[in-house]
Simulated scan of single mutants.
Amino acid sequence: MTVPDVVTVGEAMALLIARTPGPLEAVDDFERATAGAELNVAVGLSRLGFHVGYIGSLGQDSPGRYLRAFMADERLDLRHLSMDARYPTGLMLKQMAADGADPEVEYFRRGSAASRLSARDMPAPDSDFGRARLLHLTGICPALSRGCRELAFALARQARAGGRTVSFDPNLRPRLWQSRTAMIETVNALACAADIVLPGLAEGRLLTACDDPAGIARYYLERGVRQVVVKLGAEGAYVAGADVEAGVVPGVPVPRVVDTVGAGDGFAVGVISSLLDGLDLRAAAARGCAIGARVVQFRGDCEGLPRRAQLAEAPARPGRTRINMETQA
Rank of each mutant, 00 (worst) to 15 (best):
A152R: 07
S112Y: 04
G139I: 07
L144A: 04
R180L: 13
N171A: 04
S167V: 01
G147H: 02
E150H: 07
T165A: 12
F168N: 02
Q178M: 10
A161W: 11
A161S: 15
A114C: 09
D99E: 15
S145Q: 02
S179H: 00
D99W: 10
G163K: 03
S118I: 02
C148T: 06
F168P: 02
Y107M: 05
L155F: 00
R116I: 01
M183N: 05
T165I: 11
A182L: 13
Q95R: 08
N171R: 04
A159S: 10
K94Y: 04
R131Q: 14
R86K: 15
R164T: 08
M92C: 10
G147N: 03
G90L: 15
S167R: 00
A154T: 06
V105H: 06
A97M: 06
A101F: 05
R146G: 14
R173V: 02
M96P: 07
A124D: 15
L134R: 00
P174Q: 09
R173P: 06
L172Q: 02
P125S: 10
P103H: 13
P170W: 12
L172E: 03
Q158H: 12
E150Y: 01
F108E: 15
G147R: 01
L176K: 04
P142V: 06
T186D: 14
S118R: 11
S179Y: 01
L91D: 13
Q178K: 10
D128E: 14
R116P: 02
E185Q: 12
Y107V: 04
N188A: 01
R86T: 11
A161Y: 08
L151P: 05
A182H: 03
S179R: 02
Y107D: 11
I140N: 01
L151D: 01
A159R: 04
V166P: 11
V105Q: 15
L155I: 08
Q178T: 09
R120N: 13
Y87D: 10
D102K: 11
P142T: 05
P174A: 12
L137S: 12
Q95F: 02
L117I: 05
P170I: 13
R109I: 10
R86D: 10
T165Y: 07
L144N: 10
I140Y: 00
E106L: 15
S167Q: 06
